[in-house]
Computed example of a mutant assay.
Amino acid sequence: MIARLRTYPTHVIIWVAAVFVVVPFLYGLLGGFKSSSQLSGNPLGLPSPWVTENYTDVIGSGVFWRQLLNSLFIAVTTTVLVVGLSAMAAFAFARFAFRGREFLFTLFAIGLMFPFAVAILPLFVLLRTFGLLDNPLGVILPQAAFGLPLTVIILRTFFRSIPKEVEEAAVIDGCSPFGFFWRVLLPIARPALATVSVLAIVASWNNFFLPLVVLNDPNLWTLPLGVQEFRGQYMSDIARILAYVMVSMVPALAFYAVAERQLISGLTAGATKG
């Protein structure tokens, strides 16, 4: 009985957090099946009748699919850059002893405390100088740079948890340092790589501020910017805007659902060793 009482606060916190997540989601989902008059007259009730045209119009829109492909291209390219560069940097920090190693690693850690908004003005000037405005690379490269600190920290922790004996056995078998990294370490580190990949993709998918500053051409806009355009096009049709928002969430939610197990195992891997 005492043990159950001790778990009650945890259960209460979980239920409260679930309510704050589920209620807005359900409101948006059901609101997309309503008309604007239903939303104003009965915002919390079930749709009556159900208006499916809001969702079908969004799915049938060529603009939506173009923005979806733009978001997908930017997110995947950013993730490949972040994970590839971070894996090599984390390998060097974890498996090699060299002068200044801890200082350089501390610089990466300090990057976690550097607000993105503070850098937006010099970043805009830099991108304009290199001609990267209205270019997907103008979004991809800064996202990759700001994603490096957390990714390096997570991968370094995982790489350091792998026993030295594994590396020594690989060297005896004729592996070079890069061969050990490519053929042995990366396959073992799949859970950690999946974790940082999910974090990078979701962060890129939800990024609004940087694409807003860099991309002025509507043909290059991502889904978060598309919501803004959709809001301007259908200013009084809040139900259709809700449908657009819900449909734009589906790819990220589906990816997270598929990678959830790898995400959890990657975050906990190496937690007992450092």
Rank of each mutant, 00 (worst) to 15 (best):
G41V: 09
M88A: 15
A252N: 00
G179L: 11
L126F: 15
D134K: 00
F73K: 01
T195A: 09
L29C: 13
F98E: 15
L127N: 05
I241L: 08
F33A: 10
M88Q: 13
S86G: 11
F124V: 04
I59N: 14
R95G: 10
E229M: 14
D217G: 02
S35M: 07
Q67L: 09
L127H: 06
F25L: 11
F103V: 06
V23D: 14
L137G: 03
R6P: 09
A259F: 04
F108E: 08
A92F: 08
V184A: 06
V227Q: 03
A94T: 02
F114P: 00
P251H: 05
F20H: 07
F158H: 08
L126Q: 02
A117Y: 12
V196M: 03
L121T: 15
G84F: 05
F64R: 02
A252D: 02
T222E: 00
V19G: 08
V16H: 12
L123A: 00
V21Q: 15
F96R: 01
S71K: 02
I264G: 08
W182R: 00
V16G: 13
V125K: 09
M1N: 14
V213G: 01
I154Q: 07
Q233D: 12
A254F: 12
F130P: 10
T195M: 09
Y256C: 13
F20Q: 05
F114L: 13
L185H: 06
S71N: 06
I162E: 06
L121C: 06
G179R: 04
L68W: 07
I241N: 07
P24H: 10
A90L: 10
Y234E: 00
A243V: 05
R160H: 09
L148Q: 03
L210T: 04
N216Q: 05
L141M: 04
L132N: 04
A90W: 04
S71W: 04
G31C: 13
S176T: 12
H11W: 14
F230M: 01
P224W: 06
P142L: 08
D57S: 14
R160C: 09
V258T: 09
E229R: 06
L26E: 11
L29S: 14
K164F: 13
I74R: 08
G179F: 15
V166W: 08
A97T: 15
A17I: 08
A200I: 01
L68I: 02
A243C: 03
I110R: 03
V82E: 15
L220P: 02
Y55P: 03
V171Y: 15
E102S: 10
G84I: 04
P43N: 07
L132F: 05
I14N: 09
P191Y: 12
G147P: 08
L26M: 13
A117R: 05
R261Q: 13
T151C: 13
I2L: 14
L185E: 11
L26S: 09
G274W: 10
N70L: 03
